[in-house]
């Protein structure tokens, strides 16, 4: 799944470690989500979006989810 996490992080000059600490996860998980290897749970997606002050749809690209 594509996300805007990296872009949003760069805008705010935030490291993966700092974001992970804020949203209650590990740096490795943030890396995996950014490169699309791992799909975050609803709770983690909400925490990340909430941290950036955006909605889940604004951070995560759900266009792939519509493909059957």
């Amino acid at each position: 799944m594509k996300t805007r996490i990296k872009e949003l992080r760069k805008e705010r000059k935030l490291s993966q470690e700092e974001l992970a600490l804020e949203v209650g996860t590990t740096r490795q998980t943030i890396t995996s989500i950014e490169v699309g290897k791992y799909t975050a749970s609803l709770v983690l997606a909400y925490k990340i979006a909430h941290y950036f002050g955006l909605t889940i749809e604004e951070v995560f690209d759900f266009s792939d989810a519509n493909e059957f």
Partner: peptide
């Protein structure tokens, strides 16, 4: 405090 939070996050990380 930070190390404790990192430890907590590591233990409760959904991917791990």
């Amino acid at each position: 405090e930070i190390k404790l939070k990192v430890l907590y996050n590591k233990e409760h990380d959904e991917r791990l």
